[in-house]
Design a protein around this nucleic acid. Structure first.
Length: 180
DNA sequence: CCCTGATTCGC
DNA sequence: GCGAATCAGG
């Protein structure tokens, strides 16, 4: 990938908006965060408008999980009607891609709008490229929408999903729909 | 361990 | 100019 004018403009924009180098790299695609940082320096736009960006990592606050419904009985076998979601960047992330195949069904029932009954955990809104072994890979939103992202909460002890989403993952779709 | 930006230096 | 490797730090 080379730094076309468009890509440089996007870089400038995102950088000025306070996104981190890795986030920008993920958005641009095809470049590493190092590449982004290197470019930023070469463009001499390091300082980043003093607008206090968000540096520190937000600490997880999951006191809500205990109230979420749980039904770990039968994982839905609706695999037949699942539509696998793939993005163009899968091949560049190796093993992670294998864990990033989700059904549109699941996406459709991911609770995005908070309600009085169900409290959605604050997600870290990671992009596919930002996922790691220990980040929740629950997809949020429409894969075709640019706002699409993954939960990203810590899942070090719960596998591919965080505590909250691992419960939804093993909940029959019908239950999920009702839980909404 | 997760992540951040800064710097160096071979290409 | 580019960006991987490395450093220093939260």
């Amino acid at each position: 990938m080379n730094w076309t004018d468009e890509r440089v403009e996007l870089l400038k924009k995102l950088w000025s908006e306070g996104l981190s180098a890795s986030q920008i790299a993920a958005q641009l695609g095809g470049v590493s965060r190092n590449a982004v940082i290197g470019k930023v320096h070469r463009l001499k736009l390091s300082g980043r408008g003093k607008t206090s960006a968000a540096p520190a990592r937000s600490k997880k606050v999951n006191t809500v999980n205990s109230t979420a419904r749980v039904n770990v009985n039968a994982p839905t076998s609706s695999a037949s009607q699942q539509t696998v979601v793939r993005t163009s960047v899968h091949k560049s992330v190796g093993a992670t891609a294998l864990q990033a195949e989700y059904s549109v069904e699941a996406v459709a029932h991911t609770v995005i709008r908070p309600s009085a009954e169900v409290v959605v955990p604050i997600s870290r809104r990671l992009s596919l490229l930002q996922l790691s072994e220990r980040t929740c890979k629950w997809p949020v939103g429409d894969p075709l929408n640019e706002d699409f992202h993954f939960c990203g909460n810590d899942s070090a002890e719960t596998g591919p999903y965080c505590t909250y989403h691992s419960k939804l993952a093993f909940q029959p779709v019908s239950e999920r729909r009702r839980a909404r």
